[in-house]
C-alpha cells in the first residue's frame, strides 16, 4: 500500500522505501478506511447520524477539512486501531453547494495502546443546491389585468391598484373594484413598509428550485393591502406575526425578480454566511 501510494503521489522520498521505511504520515486516514467491504462491528452512532441527515434531505456528502497530527512514524508491521468520536454537528448552514450540516469527527489512532496520530475530519452533508440542476422557479402568468404589476416589479416598484371611483386600494391586481364595482383605476407605489400579518413555513413537498424550509409571509402593507411574498434574511423559525418588514426585490434568475420582505429589527441579519466547501472537493 505504501508503494502504491507513493507511486500515485509521485513521492520519491527515500524515507518511505528500504528496510527502515516509514509510512508517509499523510496516509494516516488510509489505515482507517473500510475499503470495499466496510468495517464490521462498529457502533451505529455515525451511520445513525448520517441516516438522520439523509432523512432531512441532506443526501450528498463532501469532505471539507482534514487535520492530522503525527505523534510518531508508522512502520510496516504496526497494527493500527482507531477510536472515532463525533465532535460536533453544526447548525444548518447555507453554502454554495446547498444547505447542510458540517459534521466533525475525531479519530485517535493508537498502535498497541500508544497514541500515534490524531485525525480530525469534517464533512458537509448537504441537500444539493437547486441551481445546479437547472431547475427554475415557476414563471408568473402575466395577462392584461396584471401586466402593470409586473412592469412595476421590473423597475423595482411595487404598484398597488387604486379604484378611481371610491379610492379603495386593491391587491392583487383585478379588473374591477370589489367595493364599488368601478372598472377604473390608477396605481400608487408602495412605500415598502409592512408587517407580517400571517405566515407559513414550507417544509414539504420539496419542489425543484425551492429550498425548504422557507417562510412565506402574508405581509400587510402600510397602504392597507396584503401581499404574499417570501420573508428573507431571517431563519424561517424566527418569523413572527407582527414583525416589521421592509420591501426589497430579489433576482432569482436572469428573467425572474420578485418582491420579498426582510425584517427590520435585530433579527434581520442577512442570513447565514456562505460557508466553505464552495464546491465538492
Amino acid at each position: 500500500m505504501i508503494r502504491h501510494w507513493c507511486e500515485v503521489m509521485g513521492d520519491t522520498n527515500p524515507a518511505y522505501t528500504g528496510p527502515d521505511a516509514i509510512a508517509p504520515p499523510t496516509m494516516l486516514q488510509v489505515w482507517t478506511m473500510g475499503g470495499l467491504s466496510g468495517h464490521a462491528g462498529r457502533t451505529e452512532a455515525f451511520d445513525e447520524l448520517l441516516g438522520l441527515l439523509d432523512e432531512a434531505g441532506c443526501t450528498s456528502v463532501v469532505a471539507t477539512d482534514c487535520e492530522q497530527e503525527y505523534l510518531r512514524p508508522l512502520r510496516p508491521g504496526d497494527e493500527v486501531t482507531f477510536d472515532a468520536v463525533i465532535e460536533s454537528v453544526s447548525d444548518r448552514k447555507r453554502t454554495k453547494l446547498g444547505t447542510g450540516y458540517f459534521v466533525t469527527t475525531r479519530m485517535d489512532v493508537p498502535v498497541a495502546g500508544e497514541p500515534v496520530g490524531i485525525h480530525r475530519f469534517r464533512i458537509l452533508k448537504y441537500a444539493p443546491a437547486p441551481g445546479g440542476t437547472g431547475a427554475r422557479r415557476p414563471r408568473p402568468v402575466i395577462n392584461r389585468d396584471n401586466a402593470g404589476f409586473w412592469e412595476g416589479v421590473a423597475r423595482h416598484r411595487l404598484l398597488i391598484q387604486r379604484c378611481s371611483g371610491c379610492g379603495t386600494p386593491r391587491f392583487p391586481w383585478l379588473p374591477g373594484c370589489g367595493a364599488c364595482g368601478s372598472p377604473d383605476w390608477d396605481t400608487v407605489e408602495a412605500g415598502g413598509e409592512g408587517t407580517v400579518y400571517s405566515y407559513v413555513v414550507v417544509h414539504h413537498p420539496p419542489f425543484p428550485a425551492f429550498d425548504p424550509p422557507y417562510a412565506v409571509g402574508l405581509i400587510a402593507l402600510a397602504e392597507g393591502v396584503r401581499i404574499v411574498a417570501d420573508v428573507v434574511g431571517v431563519p424561517c423559525d424566527k418569523v413572527r406575526i407582527g414583525m416589521p418588514v421592509r420591501l426589497e426585490f430579489h433576482r432569482y434568475d436572469e428573467e425572474l425578480q420578485l418582491p420579498v420582505f426582510r425584517p427590520l429589527d435585530g433579527d434581520g441579519r442577512s442570513g447565514e454566511p456562505i460557508g466553505h466547501g464552495e464546491e465538492p472537493g
Binding site: M9, A15, Y70, P73, G277, G281
Partner: peptide, 23 residues
C-alpha cells in the same frame, strides 16, 4: 505532504497537516 517534504528533504518529519478544500 509530498510537496513539502520534496522541498525539505527526507530528514524532515511531518508533525501536522491541516487542509481545507474548496474548488
Amino acid at each position: 505532504g509530498r510537496y513539502v517534504t520534496d522541498h525539505f528533504g527526507p530528514n524532515a518529519v511531518l508533525r501536522k497537516v491541516a487542509v481545507r478544500l474548496g474548488a
